[in-house]
Design a protein around this nucleic acid. Sequence first.
DNA 1: TTGAGTAATACTCACTTCGAGAAGAAGTTA
DNA 2: TAACTTCTTCTCGAAGTGAGTATTACTCAA
Lengths: 250, 250
Amino acid sequence: MRAESTFLAAYDPTAFPPVAVTVDIVVLTIRDGALHVLLIERAEHPYRGRLALPGGFVQDETLAEAARRELAEETGLRPGEAALARVHLEQLRTYGDPGRDPRMRVMSVAYLGFAPSLPDPRAGGDAATVAWVPVDDVLELAFDHDIVLADGLERARAKLEYTPLGRAFLGPEFTIGELRAVYAAVWGEQLHPGNFHRKVLSVPGFVESTGGTTSRGGERGGPRARLYRAGDATLLHPALLRPTREEQVR
Amino acid sequence: MRAESTFLAAYDPTAFPPVAVTVDIVVLTIRDGALHVLLIERAEHPYRGRLALPGGFVQDETLAEAARRELAEETGLRPGEAALARVHLEQLRTYGDPGRDPRMRVMSVAYLGFAPSLPDPRAGGDAATVAWVPVDDVLELAFDHDIVLADGLERARAKLEYTPLGRAFLGPEFTIGELRAVYAAVWGEQLHPGNFHRKVLSVPGFVESTGGTTSRGGERGGPRARLYRAGDATLLHPALLRPTREEQVR
DNA sequence: TTGAGTAATACTCACTTCGAGAAGAAGTTA
DNA sequence: TAACTTCTTCTCGAAGTGAGTATTACTCAA
């Protein structure tokens, strides 16, 4: 496409077939020690009755605003809600191949979200079912959402390695054990408690002590744990690498 | 946006304001030891005379196909060209905030490309100027392309750490020194030759020996170097981390 | 009240990786 | 032939890692 025709065509939108732009959101959270994703059940064709990622059309707003608005609508949280503001949202990638939606060409800008524990979602104004679903139970989503979810999970697993975003799954104060449970849930593997403890405390700016402890031990015993809050690091150095990746690399 | 209204609106594209979808490409290459990016000079308003990233409207094709087509058009390479096929292209991110293009709402899906040495670009059928520009000389691009370029550079720098994509800047056979020059150009720092050598050879699947050597030493002396080709790794483990990131992390 | 079990935290130890530096060999140009 | 450059291989101490152990403080249930 040349510069001139770009210029002219831009003033004549009908020169190109219509394209719809949506955001779809892969919001992850931890419930009962397992990684869950927010899914809706589609009430209409195509893919009626199938589960899908929440999403919708982009209005006169930025893409990030569209994603946060959709998140608020689907979780039933008020836009001003504190819990909503603590959800980390970042752009994942864009899916726009012809034919991914049978109705028309739809460009879907996918966002990835990390949420702390949220109440059960109330369905929006319509009758659509909304629920947190364990990612291991997800099967055959609508459209190309299986791929979107897989991309989101891989991004999430990688992000936990070299950013402190695992904190986004927790409240403002947390224990090292809770943080370790986040890593275990996202990565799907158990981690060595002693080594994890040592690593988290050795990375500058990952967590900082509040001075307090939990008011009681764990559910099945054990001493009280010290409480930490988020530090000011935006990257982890050194990173916390996933174990046993040797085989998968090649 | 609710499921029903989504469904209905999708059958009535006029229910939403028109959106144009383009791809813009950040193609990087190494020339004379410096990192260069392919830029065009805009022939028309807006931003007439300003440099911009090459790009254009998405037609009835996948996004990746659109990016490769634009790349071929702007570099003047034939679509079947071998050099073109060796350019690594991956999606960077999507820029779609209102107002980023004064004419209408434009969603730009940016792609990032790593190219081996290519001939000087011949401008396409139109008069637009196309050229490789050292990234350090780039200043005030059109639209939000400064941000796109900055995002692309950061992605490129990070990708070199944990993927073998630095090879994409080189030909099918290369020396460790040439690979080191790629890293130095992209990261903008000199690297310890001995340590780099050790690391590259110690990462499984990064490079494999061809058994041959260069036919003569370097331009300013030194022995002949052994030749290597790409190995089969898709991720580097352990990674080659950038030096001196301690300060930037927080 | 006590005992069994659990988890937080802090060690040790062998191994790997890293940055910095040095050195030898093999090539270049002047 | 001399001066210089670069490839390649070492060495050494510092730092980081996985696996395991130990101590202590808590839980629940008998």
